[in-house]
């Protein structure tokens, strides 16, 4: 079976004033369907740039990116929006839910841009919320939800389109230990039981330890890429 993600010689250069910054240098990467992967690295290592490219939010300067067998490198803005909508679910550190908007409406949002009927949107959003255990919070706004609940709403929003890839950028960064476990457990479950490829960007090693593969980025290159015997999220040691 072919890889879900395939990067070939991907480079990303930025102009920072007069200087060229090589954010990514010749990245080669293959990730299969259903993998649970952590991307770790210090800030400035290029892991955010990598995630932006994987999330079709940014284009590589050179190289080639194939997602689910589709070359998305040279796609137009509209086509990349379509790819994000169909193939990718995003979970952010800051939750990034629309304020003053109910959980259900937040979860429905990706389907709005897909032109799904109101009734079908409601059905699927309610189902996604139930999957993350928040069926009873459907009509709460983010302000009425705890951090862990907000992040679970965000995960439901990422899931509602049934994407093959879920990109989580520091998903536990704003959460305490206990809720971090819950969220991490949920991501593990999605990968193991639903065959979704989950990529977690983190700078915390104990979070990375819960995944099956750890990719370390340093100076814009893949410094280390090794399998890991995943521990269950509950085993994550308490952080201060």
């Amino acid at each position: 079976m072919s890889a879900l993600i395939r990067l070939r010689g991907v480079c990303k250069d930025y102009m920072s004033g007069p200087e060229v910054v090589h954010a990514l240098v010749d990245v080669e990467l293959e990730i299969g369907a259903g993998e649970l992967v952590a991307v770790v690295g210090a800030s400035g290592s290029g892991k955010s740039t990598l995630m932006n490219i994987l999330g079709c939010l940014d284009r590589p300067t050179r190289g080639r990116y194939e997602l689910a067998g589709i070359d998305v490198t040279e796609r137009s803005t509209d086509q990349r929006a379509l790819v994000r909508n169909r193939l990718i679910g995003f979970v952010f550190q800051g939750f990034n839910l629309l304020p003053r908007t109910t959980a259900l409406e937040n979860v429905e949002l990706p389907l709005v841009y897909r032109g799904v009927s109101t009734r079908e949107r409601f059905r699927r959003a309610a189902h996604a919320l139930a999957q993350v255990g928040l069926a009873d919070r459907a009509h709460h706004t983010p302000a009425q939800l705890s951090g862990g609940q907000q992040q679970r709403v965000a995960i439901a929003r990422a899931l509602v389109t049934n994407p093959p890839l879920l990109l989580a950028d520091e998903p536990t960064g704003n959460l305490d230990t206990r809720t971090s476990h819950e969220v991490l457990g949920l991501l593990q479950e999605l990968s193991e039981q639903h065959g979704i490829t989950v990529m977690i960007v983190t700078h915390e090693t104990d979070i990375a330890a819960c995944t099956r593969r750890i990719i370390t980025v340093r100076d814009g290159r893949i410094f280390r890429d090794e399998p890991n015997a995943a521990r269950p999220a509950a085993a994550v040691e308490s952080r201060p």
């Binding site: 939010l57 929006a81 379509l82 841009y113």
Partner: peptide, 16 residues
């Protein structure tokens, strides 16, 4: 601006 970013990330086209 942030809301616009979220909408774009989850698949809103510029035209949307």
């Amino acid at each position: 601006t942030r809301e616009i970013g979220i909408r774009m990330a989850i698949g809103a086209k510029p035209a949307d």
